[in-house]
Design a protein around this nucleic acid. Structure first.
Lengths: 147, 147
DNA sequence: AGGTATCGTGGGTAAAAGTGGGTAATTGTT
DNA sequence: AACAATTACCCACTTTTACCCACGATACCT
């Protein structure tokens, strides 16, 4: 079970390659085989799953019913953008243009570890996201955490 | 068990040939024998099954009752257009005109991997399909995924 | 503090993938 | 049997991707 944490300011080169920070790599299971799946996230960012974590997600998608139109929509939207990528010798994954466009990413990214997955943001959009929250961290904490 | 994912903008030549993206091919079982079955999908797109996955589907259709009129309709609609096609040396399948017309496909297609099958769309129709959804991806995710 | 290993970034090149077209074989039709 | 139409197979070109090498910066260790 992965436990990613921390945020990292990294760059994207003109081939669409993004380095996976060393501190995050140390938390990737051996079973992931240096392979990651990138797809759209919630809000305008990208989610990166190590292969072992992706497999869990895939399993839960398989339980959905292809004859249910809402399920179909969800499966299509999620899988449409999903791309597998293996680390190169420099520990980078390459992200297709379409995904970079989806997340409005150009040259710089903010990489955030969120337990079982990794998020990739346009740094400016992440700032806006934080500012757009109506409630403060403290208020949300009160309702989200029981304790 | 196939696990297709990702979307790919490809072209159809004037012979009705469509390339199966390399990343999808890597997920096709050896038992499929480079053979695919194309038929109508849900919404106005085409479904492509590798032979091994098609066989599973066919098996479940056999369980239907030919004396039930709704079952009969379903079987006819599905099988009527089903066409077998084997990859050529360039990894393309050829799709009959009738099926291309059914899906309103002309020169360009969007190919989407959806776990056990592959979908082929007119890119514009797929856009419309996405926009026509009443709920956002985030909202659907919340109710569709338990977690 | 200095040497060493690791890390992040950039670019070049060979192999693979995608696209288009030509010709021979096959099919069906008159 | 001859012809037209379709299909299958082969070849050629362009673009993209994967793999390799190189360099500067940072962290680490003794």
């Amino acid at each position: 079970m992965s436990a990613f944490k921390g945020s990292y300011a990294y760059s994207v080169d003109n081939k669409g390659r993004v380095n996976i920070p060393a501190k995050l790599r140390k938390n990737v299971a051996r079973e992931a085989n240096d392979t990651f799946v990138v797809t759209r996230g919630y809000e305008e960012c990208l989610f990166v799953y190590p292969q072992d974590e992706w497999n869990k997600l895939e399993e839960s998608i398989r339980q959905l019913s292809p004859t249910n139109s809402r399920h179909r929509f969800f499966m299509r939207a999620l899988l449409e953008r999903a791309t597998e990528s293996q680390l190169d010798a420099q520990a980078r994954i390459s992200i297709p243009k379409e995904l970079l466009q989806f997340a409005h990413i150009e040259n710089e990214v903010l990489i955030i570890g969120v337990l079982e997955h990794i998020e990739i943001w346009n740094p400016k959009l992440y700032d806006q996201y934080l500012k757009a929250q109506a409630e403060s961290y403290e208020t949300v904490a009160q309702t989200v955490l029981q304790k």
